[in-house]
Computed example of a mutant assay.
Amino acid sequence: MRKYAISDSQLISQYKNGNEEAFSTLVNRHKKKIFTTIYLIVKDQYLAEDLMQDTFVKVVNTVKSGRYNEEGKFLPWVSRIAHNLAIDHFRKAKRYPTIVMEDGSNVFNTLEFSEVSIESKQIQQDTHALLRDLIKELPDAQREVLMMRHYMHMSFQEIADATDVSINTALGRMRYALINLRKKMDKKNIAYDQNLYPR
């Protein structure tokens, strides 16, 4: 770990006391790492830069409102904010995932028909909304890997890098996410039969 003449905690204290330069030092010290954290998820330089700005705005607001209490853990805290903003960006974009269960069946038939009846479109939208709610109920680590894989189309290597875990851990989380999702779908009686939702 790199040793600095002045620690992050000291810089935060100085910033709280009105030293704006102290915050600039913090940003310059960590912006490369924060940018990388975001870029690994969104894979778009301009979007990553925007989200990095949003991250530091959130940091400023939290510190200035007196709600910052992560003493000695500034970088992990900021990385978490950046990570969550990147994930939220995809959640708000409302991209529909193609979730393939372990038996190879699709949660949704991803074929788009040019003439879909209003009724079936409504059913599809309702089911997508229900699925998003079920995904929200998953444990954080499982929800995260599921979203990265199916909403963001990231490879397991990219997911492992972005979440700082091994590929085996990422694969394990994905497996449990699908098992849990299937249980929830069974309870709600959502079909994932491969005849209904062909690959």
Results as ranks from 00 to 15, higher is better:
residue 154 M to V: 02
residue 154 M to R: 15
residue 154 M to K: 14
residue 155 S to T: 14
residue 155 S to K: 10
residue 156 F to C: 07
residue 156 F to A: 02
residue 157 Q to G: 03
residue 157 Q to Y: 10
residue 158 E to Q: 11
residue 158 E to V: 03
residue 158 E to Y: 01
residue 159 I to S: 00
residue 159 I to P: 00
residue 159 I to L: 02
residue 159 I to R: 03
residue 159 I to T: 04
residue 159 I to N: 01
residue 160 A to V: 09
residue 161 D to W: 04
residue 161 D to C: 06
residue 161 D to R: 09
residue 161 D to V: 11
residue 161 D to P: 05
residue 161 D to T: 08
residue 162 A to D: 04
residue 163 T to S: 01
residue 163 T to W: 00
residue 164 D to M: 04
residue 164 D to W: 04
residue 164 D to K: 03
residue 164 D to R: 06
residue 164 D to S: 06
residue 164 D to V: 09
residue 164 D to H: 10
residue 165 V to A: 00
residue 165 V to N: 08
residue 165 V to C: 02
residue 165 V to E: 05
residue 166 S to C: 05
residue 166 S to Q: 06
residue 166 S to T: 12
residue 166 S to V: 03
residue 166 S to G: 08
residue 168 N to D: 12
residue 168 N to L: 06
residue 169 T to R: 03
residue 169 T to F: 01
residue 170 A to M: 00
residue 170 A to G: 06
residue 171 L to N: 13
residue 171 L to E: 14
residue 171 L to F: 00
residue 172 G to A: 09
residue 172 G to F: 04
residue 172 G to L: 10
residue 173 R to V: 00
residue 173 R to L: 08
residue 174 M to L: 14
residue 174 M to G: 13
residue 175 R to G: 04
residue 175 R to N: 13
residue 176 Y to W: 13
residue 176 Y to F: 15
residue 176 Y to M: 11
residue 177 A to M: 06
residue 177 A to Q: 02
residue 177 A to V: 00
residue 178 L to S: 01
residue 178 L to E: 02
residue 179 I to P: 03
residue 179 I to Q: 14
residue 179 I to H: 12
residue 180 N to R: 05
residue 180 N to E: 10
residue 180 N to M: 03
residue 181 L to T: 04
residue 181 L to H: 07
residue 181 L to E: 02
residue 182 R to P: 06
residue 182 R to V: 10
residue 182 R to Y: 14
residue 182 R to F: 08
residue 184 K to V: 03
residue 184 K to W: 01
residue 184 K to F: 08
residue 184 K to R: 15
residue 184 K to C: 06
residue 185 M to K: 10
residue 186 D to S: 07
residue 186 D to Q: 13
residue 186 D to M: 13
residue 186 D to L: 11
residue 187 K to N: 07
residue 187 K to C: 04
residue 187 K to A: 12
residue 187 K to W: 01
residue 188 K to H: 11
residue 188 K to F: 06
residue 188 K to G: 00
residue 188 K to V: 07
residue 189 N to L: 13
residue 189 N to T: 09
residue 189 N to C: 07
residue 189 N to K: 15
residue 189 N to Q: 15
residue 189 N to D: 13
residue 189 N to E: 15
residue 190 I to T: 05
residue 190 I to M: 14
residue 190 I to N: 01
residue 190 I to W: 05
residue 190 I to H: 00
residue 190 I to V: 15
residue 191 A to D: 15
residue 191 A to L: 13
residue 191 A to W: 06
residue 192 Y to T: 10
residue 192 Y to I: 14
residue 192 Y to W: 08
residue 192 Y to N: 03
residue 192 Y to G: 00
residue 193 D to S: 09
residue 193 D to A: 01
residue 195 N to T: 14
residue 195 N to K: 15
residue 196 L to A: 14
residue 196 L to S: 14
residue 197 Y to L: 08
residue 197 Y to C: 15
residue 197 Y to V: 14
residue 198 P to Q: 10
residue 198 P to I: 12
